[in-house]
């Protein structure tokens, strides 16, 4: 397992007390959003307090993992280790059906076929034993 982690060269998230439950859910292949129990505002990425009213009362909402490509770019140049070996790749914002946008990669699709508005669904990429990333692929 250690060897596998070492082989993954791209940046990994730093897990901490505030974000760990969200990352642990991803490891179980579950994507969550948050909703404030006091004012009802939803949010992504996860954080301890509601940015609208500063309430700590948080409800976790399971996302269906379905959405549409909001915008994207095919990246042909990036010197970051891990990415410089995987060019080109598609960086995108996906707008989930729940209404929130998240930054991700579009995978399992030739970059030249990616379009804004294209329906996509979440794919869980277990990049290391500790970390799973939520990426998206076109709905077949």
């Amino acid at each position: 397992m250690a060897a596998e982690s070492k082989a993954y060269a791209k940046p990994l998230p730093h897990l901490d007390e505030e974000n760990r439950p969200w990352w642990e859910a991803l490891k179980r292949h579950e994507l969550y959003l948050q909703r404030c129990r006091d004012c009802g505002a939803t949010r992504y990425y996860p954080r301890a307090l509601c940015p609208e009213c500063l309430s700590s009362q948080t409800e976790w909402l399971r996302s269906r993992g379905a959405g549409k490509v909001y915008t994207f770019t095919t990246t042909w140049q990036n010197a970051t280790p891990g990415f410089r070996e995987s060019l080109p790749y598609v960086l995108a914002y996906v707008e989930l059906d729940e209404g929130l946008k998240l930054l991700t990669n579009i995978v399992d699709c030739p970059p030249e076929q990616v379009r804004i508005g294209m329906p996509v669904t979440v794919v869980f990429d277990d990049v290391t034993p500790e970390v799973t990333l939520a990426k998206f692929r076109p709905v077949p």
Partner: peptide, 25 residues
């Protein structure tokens, strides 16, 4: 180091890419 970075850097954003997504939209 910032909270937002944890949800962005794993996907390979670049400065050009950030502006490119605005252009695409």
């Amino acid at each position: 180091g910032e909270p937002c970075d944890q949800y962005e850097l794993p996907f390979g954003p670049t400065t050009v890419g950030s502006y490119a997504m605005i252009a695409q939209r």
